[in-house]
Amino acid sequence: MERLSQLAINDEGFIFDPYTGNSYTTNKTGILILSELKNGKSGEEIAKITSEKFNIEHSVALKDVTDFIEQLRSLSLL
């Protein structure tokens, strides 16, 4: 989580990583997941939060959160 807390994320989803100089873009759901990850929540917990917030099925939310975490991993942000 330390890596994540270094990221500068603005409301529009522009992310700057001062550590590597890389920039990223994400969307609203991505911002939400990132901030919950920073809070130390697990994938399961975050899926619960997104499914409630967006009123979608828990199974869909869980699949998407898992996919997002995979993306973060492939970008070496996790």
């Binding site: 992310i15 969307n27 759901t29 991505g30 939400l32 997941i33 959160v65 996919d67 970008l75 942000l77």
Partner: peptide, 9 residues
């Protein structure tokens, strides 16, 4: 709802 996505520039 949009599926979460992150892209490196």
């Amino acid at each position: 709802y949009e599926k979460p996505i992150i892209k490196k520039l």
